[in-house]
Design a protein around this nucleic acid. Structure first.
Length: 850
RNA sequence: GCGGACGUGGUGGAAUUGGUAUACACAACAGACUUAAAAUCUGUCGGCCUAUAGGCCAUGCGGGUUCAAGUCCCGCCGUCCGCACCA
């Protein structure tokens, strides 16, 4: 590259350094304490410090930054903070694999990622940075936990976990692969552990009802949450077990199909199953086999349905003399309903699969509307219809039959209607080291005691050993041993730590007063909360967001906040994808190692081996299709990376990372810079007025359009509008129409301010302004320039396009008709036929029907 | 398996939410500048038919509603996300 050429390019490295340090010196992005100004709280989901930022982060934080800078320019007092979701398993895995302490590993990652994020030029108030692994953060979690316990929001009970018998550790579902532990390869067992539960189910109805008011959330997320909460109205029925005093309680949402019932099934974790297994070795091994599936619902439901016939039989409540077999079945979840069902194979696919396998009767009891008989082969009928083969229910609709059977069963004292939720309580205990310690002491005599306030916080010990299996806290005798706060005798600390979702369920509140010595400062929290715009991945649509909604309510109940919903606006972004490359033998190849051949085909840069090009997939280390943001920022600059992130792909959809895309963005940044730099010396002083109405229309249309698009999260459209305007401006000669070019360039500069902030500052300065863009108001537009005198509208005959006519804006129907009927193509299409009617939508279309 | 979404040129996508389908960009091709290349600038660019005017066909596939469907409804196909201890 010659010196001359480099001269005519945007020197991004220099510009980025200069403007970033100016922003910092002037404190442009520090949230103000001025409570009289309207506030705007924009937050992106904080990152897990995994090592280095990835493109997903770049996209997420670019979008948040656009919103933050835009809102700031609109006059809001903006809070835009950043922190670290710093507890979690990867740090412990690193400790085991790389012999590095989780804290050391985590903080080193944070340093790297903070440096990388700063390279992006984000308008973040870094003075509020928090890390969840910092005792200054997690001590408040401990205090709140004890308050929740006091308030009855927390309880202790037993729960099932995946247990790795070799590593002596609890496994996450993702660590269970084909029923084996990922590290040890040992067959997984289901184990019952005493754990702490947050009683989110007490709020199930409320969390469901409140979804309706979250009108700035994507509809799909609200739907997913509603389905997750899964309210169902059904009936709990008590079946008499033949030859026993015990009864079997089942829950059903289809009590109308009771006459089609032909078996009962209970979960392998059902107490009755355990009772029977005590004297049945075969059943014991069956239950163990079910346990090997682990606790993942997805795995359980996809597994082949198997059952074990217990020999017990229950009596049908309405058919005298009829009894049904009771199975233990692997697809019945203990967590839902009563952990027992009655099966009606004709009208439930899972029951049908099961019945076919074990030769159980299939009795259809719902007749599809308009049919006279129904026979079931391998597909259950779950649609609407009328009851049949069901004695007193015959002829009723499903709804009526449900009501009738419920009435009868309740009257007979054989059951009760029950509202059930699929939502389960939130288990918050984790048998791990790198998390917030649960501030509880276990005493043999006194039982469970909270750590006294004076002894808080409970700090994680640093001297831990990851050399042996199991939780290092469990082996740390010094730390573990403590005097009982009640009787002073030696007792032991709880060695479990919190689920990391606990940390991320209130960090948004902590940002409003990150140094407060209480969890929140109510004054600050009441001013800043709720988060006006939250931005993050769709993968958090259910758990994180639901837990946070619940946690906010818990904080409000205990006085730490004063509202229910933490996030009034939500945007979920798509993922970043990239093409994948493999060798002939199937090994993944990094994009950096791929070169194009002379003709067709793609080759490995070193071995020259021809490569197979796979489809574009989510960037992941395992497929090696990752591009390092730092490389991109170093080669093209932060603005180019940001601009590309916003171009083309709608933000809620997946973005395909392409080399061509990033170079295109780079070329545009340069082109804009060059137009401004070349024109600068010929432009009139700021404030000159342009008379070029046509171009001014384009300028003001762009301002209006970009404003509207940013408000609606249509960043890709904003980018297109900026392109359009620049295309117009590039044809203006600064020597003959400098006023117009100045107005246009100033508009473009301010419009790209949120998207390419360094370039914007550079242009703004070039155009002779002293105040940085970061402190300049968002441009306004002249509405009168948006209205066109004439409009070109489409003319159709029989709904087919036949041409266009240019008529006055909002022309009267007769005027439009006359113009349309005069079109030669219309005359030809009509071919003398009689016109039946003419549909005219002003400024849109005119349709002639014959 | 259950729940949720998405599908438009060679490519990413746009379409005022039922009203001119393909804005904007990328790639490609042609031209200008250059010893040459890069960069830059100009032009062409959904398919088929046609000398032109113009016509016909195209929004994953198959139906439907409507004066009018990428948009609404029904049924398929494909891809992706979540499923409670990954974050």
């Amino acid at each position: 590259m010659s010196a001359e050429i480099s001269h005519s390019r945007f020197a991004f490295k220099d510009a980025e350094e200069r403007w970033q340090s100016l922003w910092e010196t002037r404190g442009c992005f520090n949230a103000s304490d001025d409570r009289d100004r309207p506030k705007y709280y924009v937050l992106e989901m904080f990152p897990y410090p995994s090592g280095r930022i990835h493109m997903g982060h770049v996209r997420n934080y670019t979008m948040g930054d656009v919103v933050a800078r835009y809102k700031r320019a609109c006059g809001f007092n903006v809070l835009h903070p950043m922190g670290w979701d710093a507890f979690g398993m990867p740090a412990e895995n690193a400790a085991m694999e790389k012999k590095v302490h989780p804290a050391e590993w985590t903080y080193a990652n944070i340093d790297t990622m903070r440096r990388q994020l700063k390279m992006m030029g984000l308008s973040i108030d870094w003075s509020r940075e928090i890390a969840t692994c910092d005792p200054n953060y997690y001590q408040h979690e401990q205090q709140m936990f004890l308050e929740y316990l006091e308030a009855g929001l927390i309880e202790r009970r037993e729960g099932w976990v995946n247990w790795d018998p070799v590593d002596q550790t609890v496994l996450a579902n993702e660590q269970v692969i084909d029923g084996k532990g990922w590290r040890s390869g040992a067959a997984v067992e289901k184990r019952l552990l005493s754990q702490w539960y947050f009683k989110i189910t007490d709020y199930a109805q409320e969390l469901l009802d409140a979804l309706e008011d979250l009108d700035r959330w994507p509809e799909k997320v609200r739907l997913m949450q509603a389905n997750w909460i899964g309210r169902s109205e059904g009936l709990r029925i008590s079946f008499k077990i033949e030859g026993q005093e015990n009864r079997l309680e089942v829950y059903t949402t289809r009590p109308d199909t009771i006459f089609g019932a032909s078996f009962c099934a209970i979960s392998p974790e059902h107490p009755l199953a355990a009772e029977l297994a005590a004297r049945d070795n075969e059943l014991t091994s069956f239950i163990e086999m079910c346990g090997q599936l682990g606790t993942s619902e997805a795995v359980i439901e996809q597994a082949e349905k198997i059952g074990y016939e217990t020999g017990l039989r229950v009596k049908h409540p309405f058919i005298t003399g009829k009894t049904m077999p009771v199975y233990v079945a692997n697809f019945i979840l203990m967590e839902y309903g009563t952990g027992a069902i009655f099966g009606c194979p004709a009208h439930d696919q899972r029951d049908l699969d099961f019945a076919r396998k074990y030769g159980i009767d299939v009795l259809p009891v719902v007749l599809p509307d308009g049919k006279h008989d129904v026979s079931i082969e391998n597909e259950a009928y779950v649609g609407p219809g009328k009851l049949t083969n069901s004695e007193f229910l015959n002829g009723l609709s499903i709804e009526d039959a449900k009501a009738e059977i419920t009435r009868r069963i309740e009257a007979a004292g054989q059951g009760l209607r029950e509202v059930n939720f699929r939502l389960r309580d939130w288990g918050i205990s984790r048998q791990r080291y790198w998390g917030c310690p649960i501030p509880i002491i276990h005493c043999e005599d006194c039982g469970i005691a909270p750590v006294p306030a004076a002894d808080l916080p409970v700090i994680l010990p640093e001297d831990v050993n990851f050399g042996a299996p199991g939780n290092p806290l469990e082996r740390h005798e010094d730390w573990k041993t403590v005097d009982c706060p009640k009787c002073s005798k030696p007792a032991r600390r709880e060695t479990d730590t919190f689920d990391t979702f606990m940390d991320s369920s209130w960090y948004y509140a902590r940002f409003t007063a990150p140094n407060a010595d209480t969890p929140t400062n109510r004054d600050a929290a009441d001013y800043w909360l709720p988060v006006d715009q939250y931005i993050g991945g769709i993968e958090h649509a259910i758990l994180h967001l639901l837990y946070s909604r619940f946690y906010m309510r818990a904080m409000t109940k205990t006085g730490h906040a004063g509202m229910d919903e933490p996030f009034t606006g939500l945007f979920t972004q798509g993922m970043i994808c990239h093409q994948t490359y493999r060798t002939q033998s199937g090994e993944w190849v990094e994009p950096a190692d791929v070169v194009e051949g002379d003709g067709d085909g793609i080759f490995h840069v070193e071995t020259r081996e021809p490569l197979i090009v796979g489809r574009s997939e989510k960037m992941s280390k395992s497929k090696k299709n990752v591009i390092d943001p730092e490389d991109i920022i170093k080669s093209y600059g932060a603005d180019t990376a940001r601009w590309f992130m916003l171009s083309d792909s709608p933000p809620d959809r997946d973005l395909d990372w392409t080399e061509a895309g990033i170079t295109g963005a780079w070329r545009f940044a340069n082109r804009l810079w060059r137009i401004a730099a070349d024109a600068a010396k010929n432009l009139p002083e700021p404030g000159a007025t342009s008379q070029n109405t046509e171009v001014r229309r384009a300028i003001h249309r762009a301002i209006a359009g970009v404003t509207e698009d940013l408000e609606a999260f249509h960043f890709n459209r904003s980018v297109a509008r900026v392109h359009e305007l620049v295309n117009v401006l590039s044809n203006i000669d600064p020597k003959t129409d400098g006023e117009t070019l100045r107005e246009g360039l100033e508009a473009v500069t301010l419009l790209i301010g949120p998207m390419m902030p360094h370039l914007a500052e550079e242009l703004w300065h070039t155009l002779g302004h002293e105040t940085p863009v970061a402190e300049t108001d968002w441009p306004t537009f002249d509405k009168s320039l948006l209205i066109q005198d004439t409009v070109k509208i489409a003319v159709q005959v029989q709904g087919k396009m036949r041409g266009t006519v240019e008529i006055a804006n909002n022309a009267e129907k007769p005027v439009a008709e006359e113009a349309a009927l005069a079109l030669p193509t219309v005359i030809a299409s009509l071919n003398g036929k009689k016109i039946k009617k003419i549909i005219y939508v002003p400024n849109r279309i005119i349709n002639v029907i014959h």
